[in-house]
Nucleic acid binder design. Structure first.
Length: 220
DNA sequence: CAGTCGATTCACT
DNA sequence: GTGAATCGACTGA
């Protein structure tokens, strides 16, 4: 019954595959975050695939920009973006260089270093909520834009790395529509999670931004 | 160059 | 369940 996680780092070749293959294969892997304050390790429980230029839900859909440039680079690197004026989200670039695919890391279970995360996640009601959601995950692991472009295949001592861990059986993997993704990209069941895991975030459909109230015409 | 809104989260009713 | 927070990338003129 001993479940010793495999601490072998995933090689770049792991990420140099079709994103729909890589995404579910990341479940159960160990994300290592080495920050100045210490070491944190997370068992990945929920991810989403973004399929580059062919995917209307992807930041790369309309081509390369300053923000998404890392996605067009080699696999195995971190794509960190800033959103809603407050949050960061972490992706790992997949597929061959130039394809601009990536996997959004949406949730995980702390295996180590939760003490470092709790002060940054004061609103969490329990440790299961420390990294329950992509922006929460990034906040908990102290991940910001300074890590954009970081090579996650540079070795287990690097700021970011992914270890082999203990993947779930295929029967334990579920898939469904991506959270918060609307338009043409909405129907794709490209969100993957480990069934019955307490750290998986709730599904939420895309919510179009509420327009600021403006009658458009002053009363005559 | 101004308008729009986002791969979200939190507090509050 | 609803709405606010908050800023910068992207869009279209």
């Amino acid at each position: 019954m001993s479940e010793t996680p495999d601490r072998t780092p995933l090689p770049r070749a792991f990420f140099d595959r079709p994103v729909l293959e890589v995404a579910p294969d990341l479940l159960g892997r160990t994300l290592v975050r080495r920050s100045p304050e210490g070491l944190m390790e997370l068992r990945l429980t929920e991810v989403e695939a973004y399929a580059g230029a062919i995917d209307p839900g992807s930041h790369a859909f309309r081509g390369r920009t300053a923000r998404n440039a890392v996605m067009f680079g080699p696999p195995g690197h971190a794509y960190v973006y800033f959103t809603y004026g407050m949050w960061h989200c972490l992706n790992l670039v997949c597929g061959p260089e130039g394809e601009a695919s990536g996997v959004l890391l949406r949730a995980g279970e702390f295996l180590r270093g939760a003490d470092h995360a709790r002060p940054r996640r004061r609103s969490a009601h329990s440790d299961h909520e420390l990294a329950k959601g992509p922006a929460r995950l990034a906040t908990a692991l102290d991940i910001a834009r300074s890590l954009n472009g970081t090579d996650a295949c540079a070795g287990p001592e690097a700021p970011l790395a992914v270890l082999t861990g203990t993947p779930p059986t295929p029967e334990e993997i579920r898939s469904g529509p991506r959270t918060g993704v609307g338009g043409e990209g909405a129907p794709h069941p490209w969100r993957f999670w480990i069934t019955d895991d307490q750290t998986v975030s709730p599904y939420r459909p895309h919510t179009p931004r509420k327009r600021r109230l403006d009658s458009g015409r002053p009363t005559a």
